[in-house]
Structures are given as C-alpha cells and as structure tokens.
Computed example of a mutant assay.
Amino acid sequence: MIGNERHSLPGVIGGDLLRHAKIPLLLLVAVLISAVLVVTTAHKTRLLTAQREQLVLERDALDIEWRNLILEENALGDHSRVERTATEKLQMQHVDPAQENIVVQQ
C-alpha cells in the first residue's frame, strides 16, 4: 500500500529541502534579506541626496540674499551718502559746534 500513497508536490519539495538542503535554504533566505536591505538603503540614500541638494540650493540662495543685505547696509550706512542726501534733499547745512554755542546763549 505504500506505493499507492499520494503526496503533494510542494510537500515533497519542502520535505526534501528541510532534510537535505538546510544550508542552501538558509543562504537563500540570507541573500533575499540582504537584497531587500540593499534596495531599501539605496532608496534612502537617493532621498537623502536629493534633500541635501535642495538644502544646498537653499543655502546658496540665502547666502546671496545675505551678501545683498550686507551691500545694502554698507550703502545705507555710508556717511557721505547720508550727508549728500541731507544737503540735497532736505536742504540741511553743516553746523559748526563753535557757532552753536553762540546761538544757544542768545
């Protein structure tokens, strides 16, 4: 009656693998796990690289803005420019400190 037994093919293959091919089966599982980890790591690396590039572009834009602000500050803080603006637009005159005392005392 042993010859009339019916076995399923997946069951026979699984049984043979567990009995005779434990090391190759473990190696297959290890290869599959490492392949998934490599793909995951590559994906995360690409995301981080894209994020880094975006941050570098943002830093460059902020650096340009900072330089422009420094130039603007220097231009606005220039004493000769302020003095010229005061005399031309506001018709102000330079006051001598010695003459100022005379005016205040009167």
Rank of each mutant, 00 (worst) to 15 (best):
A30T: 01
W66S: 05
L25D: 04
D60W: 12
L32M: 06
L71M: 13
E58Y: 00
E73L: 11
Q51P: 05
I64N: 14
S34Y: 05
L57Y: 13
R52H: 10
L27S: 04
L32E: 07
H20I: 09
L32N: 03
R19K: 10
R59N: 07
V31L: 14
I70P: 00
R67S: 14
I70V: 15
K44W: 15
V38C: 03
V56E: 01
E73W: 13
R52T: 00
T41M: 11
I70G: 04
D63M: 12
L62D: 01
L37G: 09
A50V: 10
L37D: 02
V56F: 05
L27C: 10
L17A: 09
H43M: 10
E58N: 00
L28T: 01
K22M: 04
R19H: 13
E72S: 09
I64H: 07
E73D: 07
L69D: 04
R67K: 09
L69T: 03
R67L: 15
H43E: 10
E73A: 12
A42G: 04
R46C: 07
R19E: 14
R67G: 04
A30K: 02
L57C: 07
A75W: 13
K44H: 14
A21S: 00
L18R: 03
S34M: 15
G15P: 02
A30W: 00
D63P: 00
A35C: 14
D60Q: 14
L27Q: 01
E58H: 06
L18K: 03
A35Q: 06
E58I: 01
A21T: 01
E53D: 07
R46P: 01
K44N: 09
T49K: 00
I23A: 06
Q51E: 14
R46W: 12
L71D: 12
L71P: 00
E72Q: 15
L27I: 08
D63S: 12
L71E: 15
A75Y: 15
S34W: 13
T45C: 09
N68Q: 13
E58W: 04
I23M: 02
L26Y: 09
V39S: 14
R59C: 07
D63N: 10
I33V: 04
L57N: 14
K22T: 08
K44E: 12
L62F: 09
L71I: 11
L17R: 06
L48M: 07
